[in-house]
């Protein structure tokens, strides 16, 4: 390799926000949009699926089998399977990442709900909660820590996986990696890695904060 400095700060300065597509800022926004859509899509699908698997236990075995298989599929070929349907669009990246998210979240939802102690459930029945209210106010509320633990895994890995989409031109910050490789230029690769890890840490922190807010009883228990 030729003697280039590890980071050329002037390149970062010039390309941070040029207002055109391909500037670091616009790639960052793109990345955030794709990752968050995938995470939300996964959660929206996984919640009802998980609840259904708890209600009808026989559903869970086959569902988790299918999830295991899906999770084993590498992302790049899965993007390619969608290519004939969706073309070189963002959806080609978002949909598979959403599906991976579902594969992680469904077991989390099921574990979270089934871990609710029986006496708590019976108390709810005794207090006159109908099944829907019991689900929303007792079971899902108590499942929050387990579901959020799954969501943290999903958030961090989705943020890092979006970059593989760069191979079909839809990778957000991942485009910095292909750019770096094509031009034999280190700086974009380092900028991309740093920004993606930073984003993952921020998302993780936000979800930890969300868990604090959603489970006030945990704090009360800690302080006693």
């Amino acid at each position: 390799m030729d003697d280039q400095p590890l980071i050329r700060w002037d390149w970062i300065g010039r390309n941070w926000d040029t207002g055109r597509a391909g500037s670091i800022m616009s790639l960052l926004v793109d990345h955030v949009i794709m990752a968050s859509l995938a995470i939300v899509l996964g959660l929206v699908i996984a919640l009802p699926m998980g609840i259904a698997c708890v209600r009808w236990r026989w559903l869970y075995q086959p569902t988790s089998g299918v999830m295991n298989v899906i999770y084993a599929l590498p992302s790049l070929p899965v993007f390619m399977f969608l290519l004939p349907v969706t073309g070189l669009e963002r959806a080609t990246v978002i949909i598979p990442l959403g599906v991976y998210a579902v594969a992680v979240l469904v077991p989390a939802v099921v574990d979270g709900i089934t871990a609710v102690p029986d006496h708590v459930r019976q108390s709810a029945v005794a207090m006159g909660f109908n099944p829907l209210r019991r689900l929303l106010q007792i079971e899902l509320a108590l499942a929050v820590p387990v579901v959020l633990a799954g969501l943290r895994v999903v958030a961090v890995s989705s943020i890092s996986l979006v970059s593989v989409g760069a191979l079909i031109g839809q990778g957000g910050l991942g485009n910095l990696f292909t750019d770096a490789f094509k031009r034999d230029f280190l700086t974009p690769a380092i900028v991309g890695i740093v920004l993606i890890i930073a984003m993952a840490l921020i998302a993780d922190g936000l979800l930890i904060f969300l868990q604090r807010v959603l489970t006030p009883w945990a704090k009360a228990r800690r302080s006693t």
């Binding site: 961090v156 910095l176 770096a180 993606i196 890890i197």
Partner: peptide
């Protein structure tokens, strides 16, 4: 464990290949 999940594979590949050829 946390770092591995956040580390973008494509980025790591490109970085190491650019550094080592």
């Amino acid at each position: 464990a946390n770092l591995a999940r956040a580390l973008p594979t494509l980025g790591l590949l490109v970085l190491i290949v650019l550094l080592l050829g």
